[in-house]
Design a protein around this nucleic acid. Structure first.
Length: 992
RNA sequence: GCUCAAGUGGCGGAAUAGGUAGACGCGCUGGAUUCAAAAUCCAGUGUCUUAGGACGUGCGGGUUCGAUUCCCGCCUUGAGUACCA
């Protein structure tokens, strides 16, 4: 009987698919389209581990399934190949990031190919290719040439805005995007200098250059967007981040805040991910209230402070106003008497890093400005304070403090002995603020007494608008996204500067390719790495890049030195796949109209507030421009869970040995001995004889190893051990471990009585530094790609995080061997499939499996369909089934999961074409209700009658069958049930 | 603190419009085959048991003929978010 030689089979079919372009998608077809996409990988130097392909396997199964169902499937893959790791490697080694990136891509491709994905590689994109980033630059220019009209709620060409300005000024323009434009007339506009016009327009553009407060990471030498910061440190590397002002390009994503929220209703994404985006956008409804300043510094009288509040109903509880330390008015507002205190306070707060400020939310700090503002309704004078609990970046950077209704205001007022007026009916606010707005009845508040939150808020807003001292306002937490990075390995901006005004390079001259530099570090003067390029100036006559020394500010101008952030290249790549070689357009209209958007997108949830938000923003923008016919990039999204590594830890005795590292012998103690010492509180040397020997050895080296009844796990340091040195019983290969690192050569090991050394296990993220990485290449080599694919699915639900456990793979592997055998048993020399008519049992097994597998694929419940395959093959084996009628559809069923073995068997079954588009088998319910059997029907413990019921009848059919006997079924008290639910042998539900 | 998700054998996990709990796999036990091993195959495997059953899906209640599933209150774990006025 021929054996299952998976290595040969897999190599054969991978070659076949590549040579025949089996998975190349056509941009025109009579078939319906389906677009399946993975989040493309960043090709890191470490290569793939078994966790990376999880999502790719799932999407591949779905793509292959859809091909069987008669769809024209687009399933491309590419590389997100600009980014920090390659650049940092370049800084360390001097190697060009292009080179290392290319090498890494090469390694990725080999690894991916071994797993047998049905990617259409003819459509591959790389974000660092000039032919690709040409279109990233092109989109940037489109954004620059557009502004967002709030009246129409869409982006419009900036040229139309210029027309309006020169015809009627800007008074009628509804912009409302964080820029208070000074009003000008048409005549004034025409009289402005070119420079002035440009600087005004810059405030309207969807990408704009502005002095913004940014998150500067000194270690990385670059600014970071909000989503690139986690817990106050950089996401990559965990370096501190400080806030500072810099001239930066920004993306006006805030213009799209509402549409980004609304769009979530139309797309099929996990609710948790939608929640994350909703939270990030952070819409809140409230009011803008203007307080007039009185009793301030002489020259500031009559100034206005705007505050944003979500609780306009509590306006009569305002007993002070608090400004963020960074607020514009702070310096000018402060009275002479308070000037010293205030500047001291501002200096102290500015020194604190973002992280310190976040970590230390309990400490209340602030300072009085000496100034007062007047309450818009009561006319009372209210003190103006400064406090760092008010954030400059949210709302207006100033709040009306209502200590009775907000805990932070309450704490602040208590701390500084400020009045806490009570405006709530029957509520005691002496201890803490009353924040429950749903149960609020307002009191002591003039015209809103007795009203609830809803009514009072509305009345206050009406009154504010009437008095022209405020208005209803919706505020968003979302900030505009900083788009400049002071890095080398990213897309260059297609921008040059003429008299300090940014100008776009004409589209026909793109791409503007990344210049060569000698070093990848910032310049000595603190400019970004592109400041080192010698050939980085734009000649507006020749329309090309020329050496810097030719800059004359007449026809040759300096180019932008920043590059674009990582998310620039990933925001629209899904459209480039539709027509990746098009040199005239991002993709042809025909291709984009045909493929529309991604039907199924699979990737990690860590991109919730980055890529997945920015991508939606750019797509909505391109939709406004009429370039795209869809305004969401991804119809359905699935977040695959992470596959975790199972780290092995050996415990090193460290207690009481601090500071003696130079002469210390590392001593490792087996896990069970430690556990025993801890749980039984025994002296360790009583546990195991070889500890005494060890103590003796150590004492010669003037160290002492003391285990006592007070031994704790924290007295040991867990050291990561390479998982290849540990067997499935958690026993360490001591020799291999000793030889793995120089400092372990002399190490001593306290072993179990049987001489073994046990490690403990911990589930952690897979990473090289934890020595817990499992390489898919090894698995493919040992078990085959089909086994890897099925096992990764079998591990558990797709969305769930789960540990990798190589031990379990044998079950899936032996299933494939059994599957192979099904087609080969009985004949000495190989393939043995008969044309006999299949038995009822055979057909039952087949159709049961078709039903289950198709349901599972539709529900993305791939783990359970692997179980169904196993059951099917076991049943067919014991039925001695080798009928073509059964085995041919069976191999199609399994081909999305295990495509190589399926192709091989398909060929052996006599087919010339690839199995990939063979029609998916049809489920016939008749085969499942063929057999029937006598069942006793009983309820309330008593047998009532027996009736003949089909073995695998659906629940509904069973019910119907019993309903026919309805009259004979009675409760013990004689009532007749309305509905009877039955499973074979038992009545299980009587409703009546 | 807030939001969300999840707690089922030794392990990964099945099963929810409420209806035979523990599918399937790993592991373990016994057997066949083998000089032996690997591989393969067969049987068993939630707990207790007086062998008839009894008890079992984090804990405590509730609804129901019936609850892993629904409701209320806890506990635990994980994820996200965090002075957002």
């Amino acid at each position: 009987m021929s054996k299952y030689h998976f290595n040969d089979i897999e190599a054969k079919w991978q070659k076949f698919w590549a040579e025949n372009g089996t998975f190349q998608a056509e941009n025109q077809s009579d078939k319906p389209k389906y677009y399946v996409l993975d989040m493309f990988p960043y090709p890191s130097g470490a290569g793939l581990h078994v966790g990376h392909p999880l999502g790719y396997i799932a999407s591949d199964i779905y793509a292959r399934y859809k091909r069987h169902k008669g769809f024209n499937v687009l399933h491309p893959q590419g590389y997100d190949s600009f980014g920090l790791p390659a650049e940092q490697y370049a800084i360390q080694t001097g190697q060009h990031p292009r080179k290392t990136t290319q090498e890494n891509i090469g390694r990725y491709r080999v690894q991916l190919d071994k797993i047998g994905f049905s990617f259409d590689w003819s459509r591959e994109v790389r974000t660092s290719d000039p032919s690709y980033y040409k279109w990233t630059q092109w989109i940037f220019i489109q954004l620059f040439e557009s502004w967002y009209c709030k009246t129409l709620e869409k982006a419009l060409p900036i040229s139309e805005l210029v027309e309006v300005f020169s015809e009627q000024g800007n008074e009628s323009i509804n912009f409302d995007c964080g820029y208070d434009a000074p009003i000008f007339s048409a005549d004034e506009w025409k009289a402005y200098s070119e420079e002035k016009k440009e600087s005004i327009l810059l405030n309207y553009r969807l990408t704009y250059l502005a002095e913004t407060e940014v998150n500067w990471c000194p270690e990385l030498g670059t600014v970071l967007a909000n989503d690139e910061i986690v817990n106050g440190v950089s996401e990559r590397g965990g370096y501190p981040v400080v806030r500072m002002k810099m001239m930066q390009w920004s993306m006006r994503i805030t213009a799209y805040a509402q549409r980004l929220l609304d769009g979530l209703d139309k797309i099929d994404w996990p609710q948790s991910l939608k929640d994350t985006q909703i939270n990030w956008i952070g819409k809140s409804k409230g009011a803008l209230v203007t307080f007039n300043v009185v009793r301030a510094n002489e020259d500031l009288r009559g100034a206005k402070i705007e505050v944003f509040t979500t609780r306009p109903d509590t306006i009569f509880g305002t007993s002070f106003i608090t400004l963020a330390p960074e607020h514009d008015l702070v310096e000018r507002l402060t009275t002479i008497e308070q000037r010293f205190e205030v500047s001291k306070y501002i200096e102290a707060t500015s020194k604190r890093s973002e992280r310190e400020r976040m970590a230390d939310v309990k400490t209340i700090s602030g300072v009085f400005t000496g100034a007062y503002a007047v309450h818009p309704f009561s006319g009372e004078e209210i003190p103006i304070w400064i406090g760092d609990y008010v954030l400059a970046g949210y709302g207006t950077g100033a709040v009306m403090s209502v200590p009775c209704g907000d805990q932070r205001d309450h704490d602040f007022a208590n701390h500084f002995n400020i009045d806490i007026p009570n405006i709530f009916e029957g509520i005691d606010i002496s201890e803490e603020a009353f924040v429950d707005k749903d149960n609020t009845i307002i009191a002591n508040s003039d015209f809103i007494n007795g009203l609830n939150y809803e009514e009072a808020s509305q009345k206050v807003i009406e009154a504010l608008e009437e008095k022209n001292t405020g208005e209803g306002k919706i505020n968003y937490r979302l900030r505009d996204a900083v788009f400049s990075r002071q890095r080398y390995w990213g897309e260059p901006f297609p921008v040059y500067y003429k008299d300090g005004i940014p100008k776009m390079i004409a589209i026909e001259h793109l791409p503007l390719t990344l210049p060569e530099v000698e070093k990848y570090l910032p310049t000595e003067t603190g400019e970004p790495p592109l400041g080192r390029a010698d050939v980085w100036a734009w000649d507006t006559d020749k329309n090309e890049v020329v050496p810097n020394h030719k800059i004359d500010h007449e026809t040759v101008f300096p180019l932008e030195l920043n590059t674009m952030p990582g998310w620039a290249g990933s925001s629209c790549y899904m459209f480039r796949y539709m027509d990746p070689h098009n040199e005239e357009e991002l993709a042809s209209k025909v291709a984009m109209d045909y493929w529309e958007n991604v039907d199924l997108y699979i990737g990690g949830s860590e991109h919730a507030t980055g890529h997945l938000l920015y991508s939606r923003f750019w797509v909505k923008f391109l939709y406004d421009l009429g370039i795209l016919s869809v305004d969401e990039p991804f119809k359905k999204l699935i977040n695959q869970g992470m596959i975790m590594g199972e780290s092995a830890l050996a415990y090193r005795w460290d207690y009481g040995l601090e500071g003696k590292s130079e002469k210390r012998i590392p001593v490792f103690v087996s896990k069970h001995i430690i556990d025993k010492a801890i749980s039984e509180k025994v002296f360790l040397k009583n546990v195991n004889k070889n500890i005494e020997d060890l103590v003796f050895k150590l004492s010669k080296n003037h160290d002492k190893l003391i285990f006592s009844s007070k031994t704790k796990l924290s007295h040991f340091s867990p050291i990561h051990v390479d998982i290849s040195m540990v067997n499935s019983s958690n026993e360490l290969d001591i020799e291999a471990f000793k030889n793995s690192r120089l400092e372990l050569e002399s190490a001593e090991f306290v072993t179990e009585d049987d001489g073994t050394f046990k490690v403990s296990r911990e589930i952690e993220k897979m990473s090289k530094s934890k020595y817990n990485v499992v390489n898919p290449d090894d698995i493919c080599e040992q078990y085959g790609a089909d086994t890897l694919r099925m096992y990764e699915m079998f591990l558990g639900p797709l969305e769930q995080a789960k540990p990798w456990n190589t031990a379990g793979i044998s079950g899936v592997h032996s299933f494939l061997k059994k599957m192979w055998k099904l087609y080969h048993s009985g004949a000495k020399d190989g393939f043995n499939v008969s044309n006999k008519v299949a038995s009822k049992d055979n057909l039952k097994t087949l159709h049961k499996t078709i039903k289950k597998v198709e349901e599972d694929i539709k529900n993305f419940s791939f783990n359970t369909s692997v179980s169904s395959f196993m059951i099917a093959v076991n049943e067919l084996t014991s039925q001695k089934c080798n009928n073509r009628e059964i085995l041919e559809p069976l191999v199609i069923l399994i081909s999305p999961y295990a495509p190589h073995i399926a192709e091989e068997l398909w060929e052996k079954l006599g087919h010339k074409e690839s199995i990939s588009t063979a029609p998916f088998p049809k489920f016939e319910s008749e085969y499942l209700v063929e057999n029937s059997k006598e069942y006793p029907i009983s309820f309330n413990g008593k047998t009532r009658f027996t009736m003949e019921l089909p073995l695998d009848m659906s629940k509904g059919d069973l019910e119907a069958a019993v309903m026919a006997h309805e009259k004979t079924i009675r409760y013990l008290d004689g009532r007749t049930p309305k509905k009877v639910i039955v499973v074979p042998g038992k009545i299980i539900n009587i409703v009546g």
